[in-house]
């Protein structure tokens, strides 16, 4: 038996093999007949879908973090109308289905504004939707920084901007990280809904593949793998960040 730093990797491998065997056994039980050749023929389409998903997700992540931060600040603003407006936006975005937001946002709002690029509209709409969730994660983290820290910040002479920059945000980041990672993983998966506004991202490509090659499930297994290729490194990266921000309080 090995010990030391290799051990987690060994266990990961064992569990992975175990899970794969279980999956194989399940498929074997229902006598599913595979047709991998047709999937292989569509590999470049599949890859393009994956790149599109990746681009949308990265764009929407940037938008969502900016929107989330702005909404968080708005919900804490001293001016009541701003507070109410931001609360309303958060509740509306979180409370209604993304599907409806995409349809109305693209076919009505974007058309009215004469924006025709579905990719841009999709990134903004998805970013706003996830930003509303992030706003609440950020708000929770910021409000968990106690009154004594705010008082200490004022006592050393910091104004409100310095207080946020040097005292509240550095401490809040650490508390917001786990929730934020989860939300960004959700964002990547939610990007599949953008097919309703004519964006051929990964899931849409697989649907096309399945219907044109008369296969049922062959496309979906690589699909799951393709998402994991993005989400697993994201989670890993977030854990590294958490470790960097870790300190005793």
């Amino acid at each position: 038996m090995t010990s030391g730093p290799q051990r987690p990797y060994l266990w990961t491998f064992v569990l992975f093999v175990g899970a794969s065997l279980a999956l194989y056994a399940t498929f074997a039980t229902v006598h599913y007949s595979w047709n991998w050749q047709s999937v292989w023929n569509y590999r470049s389409q599949f890859l393009w879908g994956w790149v599109t998903t990746l681009l949308i997700s990265m764009g929407a992540m940037v938008v969502s973090i900016i929107v989330g931060f702005a909404l968080m600040l708005g919900r804490r603003a001293p001016v009541e109308p701003v507070r109410l407006l931001c609360t309303g936006i958060v509740e509306l975005l979180r409370g209604s289905p993304l599907l409806v937001q995409l349809l109305i946002g693209y076919y009505i709002v974007a058309t009215a504004l004469r924006i025709n690029d579905p990719l841009v509209v999709g990134i903004v709409l998805l970013g706003c939707f996830e930003g509303a969730y992030l706003a609440e994660i950020f708000r929770g983290a910021v409000e968990s920084i106690g009154a004594s820290q705010r008082e200490a910040a004022r006592a050393v002479g910091f104004d409100i901007v310095q207080t946020y920059r040097f005292v509240i945000i550095p401490q809040a980041i650490r508390r917001a990280l786990p929730g934020t990672t989860g939300q960004l993983v959700s964002l990547i998966k939610d990007s599949s809904l953008l097919s309703v506004i004519a964006i051929e991202e990964l899931v849409q490509k697989v649907r096309i593949l399945n219907s044109s090659s008369y296969t049922a499930l062959e496309g979906y297994l690589p699909l799951a793998a393709a998402y994991l290729i993005v989400t697993l490194p994201l989670s890993w990266f977030a854990r590294q960040l958490e470790r960097r921000f870790a300190y005793e309080t």
């Binding site: 004594s148 820290q149 200490a152 006592a155 550095p170 650490r174 309080t249």
Partner: peptide
């Protein structure tokens, strides 16, 4: 300059 009962240093 202020000093508090609970120190209130910045923990990070």
């Amino acid at each position: 300059g202020f000093v508090f009962q609970g120190y209130n240093l910045f923990p990070h």
